[in-house]
């Protein structure tokens, strides 16, 4: 256990700049969105924005269309904006593919030449992925809290703590599931670049599948395969409770992905 602690500390030290900068940028992004929402609210422009949205987009968004035309909707957008999702995904994949990078660079040779079981390497990466996800979501929540308290009027229609919490939990599980998928891919690959590219392509395909299925009915038959299907920010912002099914599916993907990563890493040759 002492070795695990030192492995975690070393990895966190290694990725500290990435995590610090990502955390600050994500928090700042929340603040910027709140400033934007505040500006729109002050100029009573939410109704004008509604007129600008084309009908087909209204059809896609359905009843959640109204959500975008509110202060709360714009604030919550920070939890499912493509830029935020992309940033979180990139951090998750970067962390999840560290085991394969260590094999590629030969650093792991020095580590595993010691009396240290291989599974600690995967456990360490899993825990660092978990810590990082919680930290980044916490930074986003801090950004939201700071932005609301510093820049928003009290009667602007703030999102409730439950809504922000539900979004953060759902988003966190989604990112953990992608971290697990990327780690399993990494444990089967010889190169970090290959693992990152495969995970990126897979995520893009899954994201587009989910997105297309919202507008094009035939795509719904395969949309259930996309992890993004189990992140339902529009419903959450509209006040729906966090569906247990989403949590089970995303949690299941994460558990299966990490388990596969363990098996693959334990069985593979460590050669660069």
């Amino acid at each position: 256990m002492t070795a695990l602690f030192h492995l975690i500390a070393q990895l966190l030290h290694r990725v500290r700049k990435l995590l610090l900068s990502a955390g600050v940028l994500l928090a700042a992004f929340q603040v910027v969105l709140i400033l934007q929402a505040n500006s729109i609210q002050s100029s009573n422009s939410f109704s004008k924005m509604g007129d600008l949205i084309p009908p087909f987009l209204r059809d896609i968004l359905g009843s959640s269309f109204a959500m975008f035309l509110s202060f709360k909707g714009i604030v919550c957008l920070g939890y499912f904006h493509p830029v935020v999702m992309g940033a979180l995904f990139s951090v998750s994949v970067t962390l999840a593919t560290i085991p394969v990078m260590e094999i590629e660079t030969g650093f792991i040779d020095l580590v595993l030449a010691r009396s240290l079981a291989r599974h600690w390497i995967v456990t360490r990466s899993l825990l660092v992925a978990l810590i990082s996800t919680v930290y980044l979501l916490a930074m986003m929540a801090v950004g939201t809290w700071l932005g609301l308290n510093k820049f928003a009027a009290k009667d602007a229609g703030w999102p409730s703590f439950e809504v922000v919490g539900s979004l953060a939990i759902n988003l966190g599980l989604l990112m953990l599931s992608w971290a697990a998928i990327a780690m399993a891919i990494g444990c089967a690959c010889r190169r970090r670049g290959s693992a990152g590219a495969i995970a990126g392509l897979l995520a893009l395909t899954a994201y587009l599948t989910d997105y297309i299925a919202r507008a094009w009915k035939p795509a719904e038959s395969i949309a259930w395969l996309s992890p993004f299907r189990y992140y339902t920010p529009f419903d959450l912002v509209m006040g729906a409770p966090l569906p247990a099914k989403n949590l089970y599916v995303l949690g299941g993907i994460a558990v299966a992905g990490f388990a596969l990563a363990y098996v693959l890493y334990m069985r593979r040759d460590i050669s660069h």
């Binding site: 030192h6 030290h13 030969g106 650093f107 040779d109 020095l110 030449a113 009396s115 240290l116």
Partner: peptide, 25 residues
């Protein structure tokens, strides 16, 4: 190792201490 893969953001002393700590000896 023949080719020593190192994590370049550590100092020499930090690497020695890190490898000692995970070595359990």
């Amino acid at each position: 190792p023949g080719e020593m893969g190192i994590y370049s953001d550590l100092t020499g002393r930090e690497l020695l201490v890190f490898l000692e700590r995970i070595g359990g000896k």
